[in-house]
């Protein structure tokens, strides 16, 4: 089971420089053709300062930093039994090309639960609050990792 002594633990800060091409690449992979992500002129007409990052963009710094994998190892969770249970974003400000965002992955809770089918599982909640280069909070990411028993 997950190592409960790690509650509150913070992992190395993720620093991510937001590239225009990466914003476009993610929506292309999703199949989201909204032009605000790729056409600056249209984005500005729609009230943005530039092409904004799409709603799930913050999955990228987390994945590239490998912070979830690091946490899974550190918490002594069985990798083969891990599921991504939940993901939640709170948006405070738009993220634009050229922004440098950073955040600290933090273990917020470790809970034992029983699934509907009666199976025991541990749920680990991680949170990252991202700020930009002006120290403005841009978003909060909450991820729940489930370890099935």
């Amino acid at each position: 089971m997950a190592d409960k002594s790690k509650l509150g633990k913070k992992y190395p800060t993720i620093v991510w420089e937001v590239e225009r091409g990466k914003i476009r690449e993610l929506v292309r992979a999703i199949g989201d053709k909204n032009p605000i992500y790729s056409n600056r002129e249209i984005a500005e007409k729609e009230g943005y300062q530039d092409c904004p990052a799409s709603p799930t963009f913050l999955t990228i710094p987390t994945m590239v930093a490998g912070s979830m994998a690091t946490a899974v190892l550190d918490l002594q969770i069985n990798f083969a039994m891990v599921l991504h249970g939940e993901e939640e974003y709170e948006y405070y400000r738009e993220i634009y090309p050229g922004d440098v965002i950073s955040g600290v992955p933090t273990v917020m809770s470790i809970e034992e639960k029983t699934s509907k089918s009666g199976r025991a599982m541990d749920m680990v909640t991680m949170e990252i609050v991202y700020t930009n280069q002006r120290a403005e909070k841009v978003a909060k990411v909450r991820s729940v990792i489930v370890e099935r028993k």
């Binding site: 729609e46 009230g47 904004p52 709603p55 939640e88 974003y89 709170e90 948006y91």
Partner: peptide, 10 residues
């Protein structure tokens, strides 16, 4: 519009 979105969780 994306600019109006404040919270999104699944």
């Amino acid at each position: 519009p994306k600019k109006y979105l404040k919270k999104f969780g699944v």
